[in-house]
Design a protein around this nucleic acid. Structure first.
Lengths: 110, 110
DNA sequence: ACAGCCGTTCGCAATAATGCGAACATGTGC
DNA sequence: GCACATGTTCGCATTATTGCGAACGGCTGT
């Protein structure tokens, strides 16, 4: 595990990444979790809008209320369950697919 | 849910599908949910074995106990949460990726 | 102004997942 | 037999998510 800095990076994100996350599994996990939550929230919202539904309409299809949908579409929400994702997916004629992908290599800029 | 259903009839699955699932969103959802749960359970187990870890070892990495891991690896378990999946993924140097894919047409055995 | 729909936030009860230890059955090697 | 490790199931306390109504601000059209 060499620590030599090989590339003279001018990218601030890389620097910040090295400083705050590299070698800190907990922080990396928290980062990934936040990213995942945001991603899921956005996907739900996108799917709903794409289907031309309001939160209340989707809520009715899913069998819940608008406040619940709103909560799910919030990027900061951390309570996503597969059960709920499946219910939403089923209501929108979709299915949820879950994959585990390696994160060994460096992450690329979004 | 039955795992082995290899009949000689080529359209038995189609017939059963039409009879029990078509036009019944609730049953379709339940079917998909069972399939998804089984899939997730298997993926967790596969990842753990692939990493050469026992349930207790993974539990320690994740920050829980072996009984919890065992529960997660059970195909009938319905309580999968993104939080737990992320914890497991992080412990195994992976990240969870979620996708919604359309299931408009007839579903096909993988 | 009014009615209507939109997304959003709050609070709280009810439900469900997690956390944890204990115990069991199985298999392996000493 | 014994010790050890594995996967498994059970019960129960703790924690978190869901369910639901109510209310708010914003926006549109009448």
């Amino acid at each position: 595990m060499s620590k030599r800095k090989k590339s003279s990076t001018t990218n601030a994100i890389d620097i910040l990444h090295r400083r705050y996350y590299e070698g800190r599994p907990e922080r990396l996990a928290a980062l990934e979790e936040a990213r995942a939550n945001d991603s899921v929230a956005r996907k739900i919202a996108a799917l709903r809008v794409q289907a031309g539904l309001s939160q209340r309409q989707l809520a009715k299809l899913v069998g819940t209320t608008a406040s619940v949908i709103c909560r799910l579409e919030n990027a900061d929400y951390e309570g996503h369950s597969l059960a709920m994702l499946n219910r939403i997916a089923a209501a929108l004629n979709q299915r949820v697919e879950i994959r585990f992908v390696q994160t060994d290599r460096r992450l690329q800029p979004a």
